[in-house]
Design a protein around this nucleic acid. Structure first.
Length: 717
DNA sequence: GTTAGGG
DNA sequence: CCCTAAC
């Protein structure tokens, strides 16, 4: 859908603003997320490729990594940095073809002040520079801990590095691409944050790649990643001590090191998945949450990866918002019971806001993935892949474009799948954006139209979305059911299966737009962040409101499904229609809350989030509303807002008398300032004149009355 | 629950 | 729009 694109862009745009310089962590977070998103796509491809290779070659990665690493490392470590605990990367680099010298140097240099020295080098030399890489890597390793401290900018500056890190195993391609491109995608930069994580290994690996040493890279990865992993990517962990297998894991390691000090290197192997997951974790961490990631990473089985992806892509935000407390919703519903609790348990994302904010990112990701990357990536929840194919054979996908095409995917999927019983592969190419009702004056500019649409979309997204599963036209609400129980199996025609983005509210749909439609409640919702338990019932209703929204894909006629929901709950929608018809005046509005929330994203999410979460969506008054307000005030006067509300806005639920009072206040102010100073939708001068007149009249009257009151008592006394 | 006003 | 004091 067009909207997708818009959303995508919009998010990006928003994101940017969101980046605040305020906090390192915040910045990191934002950038990190982005990178992750960008990287993910790549990662998938890489993973797929790797997986294929592995399968075909059946090499044993583990050996590779261990061996090579071991010696190199030791030697390296001993020589260069004794201090540094994590020489692994260096090895990688060596293997990669990097010069030991460089490494050593790096190490030496890096060890002492691993944290920050890198930057300069990187920036100067660029990603290609081995030294730079080595430095980075060394730092990373050293750090395991230090990374955290890495300044994002540094990383960002070195897109190449960052990218590498991020993608880790998966990213090989990614990295390569980026390197080639130079900066690579936008995302690359973002990666930087990640870079921290993986940077260590990555730089070198990157270099190799550049050099054309793909094979090496893969090998490394492989080494790290065990063949068996159905997940392909992950190789479970490298037991190598904690030192990261380095190369392969560069990403993973990096993450670990960067994000979680404690995180085990094992994550390396995980590569892409980790990344995704990590990213999430990172987010959390950044936000201040405890880092679950460590646990996850270290502990997580390979399978987790998929889940992560899924979550991230699909749910990430939504989940957070809605589920945080309840792990299952998305994961369960969409994914399946198989999912590991690990992720499902996400920690609380701090705040709803954050989550909201995140959504965009994630969405972005989703979109991207969907459109661009999808091919590669399916998400695997637990064991389920959402690509269209069934695990082994059938490709049931909505999208006409079959997943089967993706070699990478398929191969990975299969391998991964094998490990588990049967898996259902689903491919979600894109999500349709819920229906939005927008009312805008003919005189509005295209720009304002765009903004309005954006706001509406943002509001929806910002409010938090959740994923709805539709099967045979019916919403599947029982999150606890397994796919099998629900009838979603490889044996079935997945075309009957649909996914929808639904508003995830915890509260009521507040806004339903004036009239409207569905809206997104998020703003109103109290839900927030952590553990906010939302009652299913409520949710459903809300959803209903939104129900229109769903949509699923292209080919399949999921569309029908959408409304099915209504049945369960009384839908606001119906009302909407009525309202709309009845109140021509009312706006249908477009809420925008998203912007604000987004802006906040990066940093302080917590506090703000909370606040924002509850804030109502902003619904600018339309000229018609203003006209009605003026008329009512002229008749009733100021100070009787409740009456005004009843008289002129009785049917506008979203307009409280306080709102009307505030609007009047602003109208008076607007009328007094020069037209050039006015913002927003212009209000006819005629109305403003009436505002001033009425205001003067009633003010005068009020004054008189007050005088009377005062005087009277005095007199009486 | 309303108003009024500051933020 | 939110928040709060005051009514």
């Amino acid at each position: 859908m067009v909207l997708q694109k818009r959303l995508y862009y919009s998010f990006n745009g928003y994101q940017v603003p969101t980046k605040r310089r305020a906090t390192r962590s915040a910045r990191r977070n934002a950038t990190f997320q982005r990178r992750l998103e960008d990287n993910q796509m790549c990662a998938f491809d890489l993973l797929a490729t790797v997986a294929d290779n592995l399968l075909q070659e059946k090499q044993n990665p583990t050996t590779y990594s261990d061996r090579s690493m071991g010696k190199d490392r030791d030697g390296f470590v001993k020589e260069e940095c004794q201090n540094a605990n994590k020489p692994l990367k260096t090895e990688l680099s060596d293997e990669a073809s990097c010069d030991r010298r460089c490494q050593h140097e790096f190490v030496k240099e890096g060890c002492p002040d691993a944290n920050k020295p890198l930057k300069p080098e990187l920036s100067d030399e660029g990603s290609t520079d081995r030294k730079g890489f080595s430095n980075i890597s060394s730092q990373v390793y050293n750090q395991n801990c230090c990374l955290k401290e890495f300044p994002i900018h540094e990383i960002e500056g070195h897109s190449g590095i960052a990218s590498i890190v991020t993608s880790s195993s998966c990213s090989e391609k990614f990295v390569a691409e980026k390197l080639v491109d130079g900066k690579g995608q936008n995302g690359t930069e973002n990666l930087a944050s990640k870079v921290e994580l993986g940077s260590s290994g990555s730089p070198e690996s990157i270099g190799c790649k550049l050099d054309g040493d793909v094979s090496k890279v893969k090998d490394v990865k492989f080494g790290k990643v065990p063949m068996d992993t159905g997940t392909g990517l992950c190789c479970s962990e490298d037991p190598l001590d904690e030192k990261p297998a380095a190369l392969i894991s560069s990403c993973g390691n990096a993450k670990l090191s960067g994000y979680d000090d404690s995180i085990p290197h094992s994550s390396l192997s995980k590569g892409c998945d980790n990344m995704l997951v990590d990213s999430r974790d990172d987010d959390e961490n950044f936000s201040g949450c405890a880092h679950p990631s460590n646990k996850i990473k270290s502990t997580r089985p390979i399978t987790c990866i998929d889940d992560r992806k899924i979550k991230k892509r699909l749910a990430s935000k939504y989940h957070k918002a809605a589920q945080e407390s309840k792990p299952d919703k998305l994961s369960n519903s969409v994914l399946d019971g198989n999912l590991k609790p690990v992720y499902s348990n996400r920690k609380n994302y701090y705040k709803s806001q954050r989550s909201q904010m995140n959504i965009p990112f994630k969405k972005r990701k989703l979109f991207k993935c969907g459109s661009d990357t999808n091919s590669n990536g399916y998400i695997r929840s637990g064991d389920t892949y959402f690509s269209l194919k069934n695990e082994t054979n059938q490709s049931v996908s909505y999208s006409s474009s079959g997943m089967s095409k993706d070699h990478g995917t398929s191969s990975l999927g299969h391998s991964a799948l094998r490990s588990r019983d049967s898996h259902v592969k689903l491919r979600i190419k894109s999500f349709r954006v819920p229906e939005l009702l927008i009312e805008i004056p003919e005189t509005a500019t295209i720009g304002s139209l765009k903004r309005t649409v954006m706001e509406a979309v943002t509001a929806v997204l910002g409010g938090g979305l959740r994923v709805g599963v539709i099967l045979h036209g019916k919403k599947v609400r029982d999150d606890s059911k397994t796919l099998l129980q629900t009838g979603i199996s490889h044996d079935n025609h997945l075309d009957a299966l649909g996914f929808a983005l639904e508003p995830n509210f915890s509260q009521n749909l507040p806004p339903a737009c004036a009239t409207s439609s569905l809206r997104i409640p998020s703003a109103d919702m109290p839900q927030p962040f952590i553990g906010y338990p939302s009652s299913p019932a409520v949710i459903h209703q809300r959803i209903q409101g939104f129900s229109n929204t769903l949509a699923e894909h292209q080919a399949t006629g999921l569309g029908n499904l959408v409304e099915s929901d209504h049945d369960s709950a009384p839908s606001p929608i119906n009302t909407l229609g009525e309202k709309i018809l009845s109140d021509s005046k009312e706006l249908i509005t477009v809420p925008e809350m998203g912007m604000e929330a987004l802006a906040v994203l990066p940093g302080h999410q917590k506090s703000k989030r909370t606040e924002i979460a509850q804030r109502r969506i902003r619904r600018p008054f339309s000229v018609a509303e203003v006209e009605a307000l003026v008329q009512a005030v002229e008749k009733l006067g100021t100070g009787r807002w409740r009456d005004v509300k009843l008289r002129a806005f009785d049917n506008a639920k979203h307009r409280t008398y306080v709102d009307l009072k505030d609007k009047w206040k602003t109208l008076v102010h607007t009328a007094r300032i020069s037209p050039q100073q006015r913002r927003g939708e212009p209000v006819p001068q005629e109305l403003l004149d009436r505002v001033l007149t009425a205001h003067a009249y009633w003010s005068q009257l009020q004054t008189k009355q007050q005088l009377k009151h005062h005087s009277k008592p005095c007199l009486l006394l």
